[in-house]
Design a protein around this nucleic acid. Structure first.
Lengths: 229, 229
DNA sequence: CGCCCCGTTGACTCTCGTCAACAGACGTGG
DNA sequence: CCACGTCTGTTGACGAGAGTCAACGGGGCG
């Protein structure tokens, strides 16, 4: 932080010199040509916004990755989602963020004013329906994660997680995890030791191969067999 | 089931004799006077809709209660939410339900055609925004539950659950649980035995009193102390 | 070069799950 | 009206899976 300009200064900085990019790369808001975002960057581990802060902006990941989490006073943390390139995040019900967002690695985003998107939604039913659809999709993901957190074993959680990440990176079966073991643990409701042990077990079973701690190659058949259902 | 008419027959039955009620009792869709629901009833334990079925209808609870759950092939079940009087449920992303809904007790609902609501949303930005807001609220609830499932102890889960139910029943501190221990367990990611033992512990600590297994009186201060944060 | 952080592994602990028995409420039918 | 079976909930004994505590290795960065 320190002298780094915060997003709060962005609207002022929105001069015509600032390079702008459209929000529509994902096909969203195609009828809102005026909805443009401001590029911004966050360093590894830097906070994008904190729980309780004013929800003034909405973000789209261009490069890198972001995690959202909720935290208890004694430090227990639950990561509610990872946001990869192309993902939008930062929408809230009400005027304040109800979780914290931090960059996993050096991350470039586009920043949009929430007010502006909301105004677009009140004017265009199509935009509002797209936002509704996005929220509903997030809800489905959250409920899938609830099943995982409430009812699945450590092996199943890790296997399901790897399959999910693989899918979000294109489904090639090989990728570099953008997050630490602690992040994985706090996403899956486990400890780092259990995550680490489970990786080792899965490797013994031939369900994956590790090259360094982050680079993973999946044996998707065996992993899916672990997750079964 | 058997000869009971299913909701699928409802649109046909929508004669002018059928008593209709507005969806707006909760203030939603105030600018859609044509959006009316058909009364329908479900018996205790009866299925409202099943995972994988066509999501043709949306429901509003008039009296009684409904649970939504996802289930694994080996029977492990995660209840993703309880729907009490006034609550809307049955919205989905895509054309099929991705969980199952069942009545906890004899329940009366109003049934709406999803198509009709969606059409209203594409025509009215205000309706779409309300739907967006509802989905976002559900998302926040789901993420709160994720924190509970991923990071909280059995005592904390049960205490948080009781506080939540109390709030939804008006916050008087005394109410009758509409669901069984099994439902509570499958909502909190525990077993019925653990739920039962935790009730007993909380009663020993003076955090609640039981009159019969369903009627509960809370000592909200002590319960909140258990949940802390 | 040395420190620090991340990840892995081992030993032990503990919470919660499993298995079992039993009590009370309820509904049914003789 | 009572006997019976069933279902829900409670409690106890025991066990397993994940958490805790600790040590250590390796890689990256100052």
């Amino acid at each position: 932080m320190g002298t780094k300009p915060t997003p709060r200064s962005i609207p002022v900085a929105l001069g015509s010199r600032t390079p702008r990019r459209s929000i529509h790369e994902c096909g969203l808001f195609a009828d809102c040509p005026d909805l443009v975002g401001t590029p911004f960057s966050y360093a590894r581990e830097e906070e994008v916004y904190g729980e309780g802060e004013d929800a003034e902006f909405v973000y789209r990941v261009v490069e890198g990755a972001v995690r959202s989490h909720k935290i208890l006073s004694d430090g227990r943390r639950q990561i509610t989602g990872f946001h990869l390139a192309g993902n939008l995040f930062g929408f809230e019900q009400g005027d304040t963020h109800w979780h914290t967002a931090e960059a996993l690695s050096d991350t470039r985003v586009l920043i949009f004013q929430r007010r502006q998107i909301e105004r677009a939604a009140t004017r265009s039913a199509e935009v509002a329906c797209q936002l509704w659809g996005m929220a509903t999709t997030s809800l489905r993901d959250a409920q899938d994660l609830m099943l995982l957190l409430g009812r699945r074993s450590a092996q199943e959680r890790v296997a399901a997680f790897l399959i999910e990440v693989d899918g979000r990176f294109g489904g090639t079966g090989a990728f570099a995890l953008p997050m630490t073991r602690r992040d994985i643990a706090d996403y899956l409701g486990l400890t780092i030791e259990t995550v680490s042990r489970t990786f080792s077990q899965l490797e013994e079973n031939g369900a994956l191969r590790r090259s360094g701690s982050r680079q993973i190659t999946l044996h998707r058949g065996r992993l899916r067999h672990v997750v079964e259902n």
